[in-house]
């Protein structure tokens, strides 16, 4: 077990296989007296095949950081490349298209479309990429089977439990085989046992050698699933550890 103190400027992740590489990333909201600085120079490397958790108190900048990494929020300064793509030079349209192809999202509130069935929800990323509804739904059924919901393909989100909805969301994040999966509090709305099922699913099904997982969480019960844990505070990364015990 090792601890890497990025605050001391010593990022030690293997940059040759880096999925995400951030240097001195800054981000503020608002202007003048109402300005809030969310990121104060974040350095972070995430390797391919790695499950990285971002933890820390509310308002420390975790969500802002994954928003910047996922390309849905523009940083103010610093550098950040994701699979060798720097969003800074991209138009909004290119960024959106890139996200559609390369990023999978798992949200705290699941964000399933309530009027679509489980299979149709899972098929959405493929439809965004231009696949026909028929082909996309067909593949979605296979993906749902992979997360253990092969028998609930026709169910609406309202007919599923929280854990089942999150599994649908994971299937949706996986179906288009993205390079990066970003999860925002994926277990906070779930009980302990269901949370563990979800994390095992993410670790065993979602993670691969060519893919990185970034999970923002407060849920200390799942810290053990991480390859590394980056502890954030007041807009910067305080330390990166490989064991939850080292967070103390």
């Amino acid at each position: 077990m090792s601890t890497v103190n990025l605050a001391a400027g010593q990022p030690t992740a293997d940059t040759r296989s880096a999925a995400v590489r951030c240097r001195a990333v800054t981000k503020s909201y608002g202007k003048g007296d109402t300005m809030v600085t969310a990121l104060r120079g974040v350095d972070l490397d995430i390797a391919k095949g790695e499950l990285m958790m971002l933890v820390g108190p509310s308002g420390c900048g975790k969500t802002t950081l994954i928003s910047v990494i996922a390309g849905i929020l523009d940083r103010d300064g610093g550098e950040c490349s994701v699979f060798d793509n720097d969003f800074a030079g991209m138009s909004q349209r290119r960024k959106t298209l890139w996200r559609g192809q390369n990023v999978g999202f798992v949200f705290q509130a699941f964000n399933l479309l309530p009027t679509l069935t489980a299979a149709e929800n899972v098929a959405v990323p493929l439809m965004i990429l231009g696949q026909s509804r028929h082909a996309a739904v067909k593949k979605a059924r296979d993906t749902l089977a992979m997360v253990g919901l092969g028998d609930r393909t026709h169910s609406l989100p309202s007919q599923l439990s929280g854990g089942q909805q999150q599994r649908v969301a994971i299937a949706r994040a996986l179906i288009h085989e993205p390079k990066l999966i970003v999860c925002d509090e994926p277990t906070s709305a779930l009980d302990h046992e269901t949370g563990h099922i979800i994390m095992r699913l993410l670790k065993n099904v979602a993670l691969s050698q060519e893919r990185a997982l970034v999970i923002v969480t407060h849920d200390a019960r799942i810290f053990g699933f991480a390859d590394r844990i980056a502890k954030m505070d007041d807009g910067h990364i305080e330390k990166i550890v490989t064991s939850p015990k080292d967070l103390e």
């Binding site: 996922a70 849905i72 909004q92 349209r93 959106t96 298209l97 890139w98 996200r99 559609g100 192809q101 990023v103 999202f105 949200f107 509130a109 964000n111 479309l113 959405v124 990323p125 965004i128 990429l129």
Partner: peptide
């Protein structure tokens, strides 16, 4: 708006 936000995050362009 939350659903549209999710769709935009997942890659739906403004044109779409």
């Amino acid at each position: 708006s939350r659903n549209f936000g999710a769709l935009k995050a997942m890659g739906v362009t403004n044109r779409a």
